[in-house]
Design a protein around this nucleic acid. Structure first.
Length: 113
DNA sequence: ACGTTGACGTCAG
DNA sequence: TCTGACGCCAACG
C-alpha cells in the first residue's frame, strides 16, 4: 500500500520544474499502470503532509487540469505558468512538449543543448 | 470482509 | 470532435 503511494510520491518529487507528468504515467512508474486514480487520490491528502511536493505538475492524460473537481484549478494553473508552462486556448497543456519522462534527466543535464 | 468512492484512462456511439 | 459508460486499483466507512 504505502509502497505504491510512496513510490508515486517519489516520482512526483522528481518531476523537474517546467515539466509535467500524467496520472497514468506516475501510476505506471509506481508499479500499477491502471492505478491512475490512486495517484490523484493520493495527491489530495499530500498537500497537507508535504506542502513542498510539486503536485501541480501532475495532470491528466489530456493535458488538462483535474483540480477543478476539488476547487483549486486557478491555483494550479498559476503555479504551472509561473514555471514557464504555457496553456492552450482550451486550457490544456501541450504534453508533447512538457511531458516528463525519467530519461529527460539527460536533457536536464544539458545534453540536449 | 463488503460495498462505495474517486485530482483517471480508454473505448464506443 | 464531443459525450457517455465501463474498467482499474487502492483507500475508507
Amino acid at each position: 500500500m504505502v509502497d505504491f503511494s510512496r513510490r508515486a510520491l517519489e516520482f512526483i518529487c522528481n518531476i523537474p520544474e517546467g515539466k509535467v507528468a500524467t496520472y497514468g504515467q506516475i501510476a505506471a512508474m509506481a508499479g500499477s499502470p491502471r492505478a491512475a486514480r490512486q495517484v490523484g487520490d493520493l495527491l489530495r491528502g499530500v498537500k497537507d503532509s508535504d506542502p513542498d511536493l510539486p503536485w501541480q505538475r501532475v495532470i491528466n492524460a489530456q493535458g488538462g487540469l483535474s483540480t477543478y473537481k476539488v476547487g483549486s484549478g486557478e491555483l494550479q494553473r498559476a503555479l504551472l505558468e509561473s514555471e514557464g508552462i504555457t496553456f492552450n486556448d482550451d486550457g490544456t497543456v501541450d504534453l508533447s512538449r512538457y511531458r516528463w519522462q525519467p530519461d529527460d534527466e539527460a536533457e536536464q543535464l544539458g545534453l540536449f543543448n
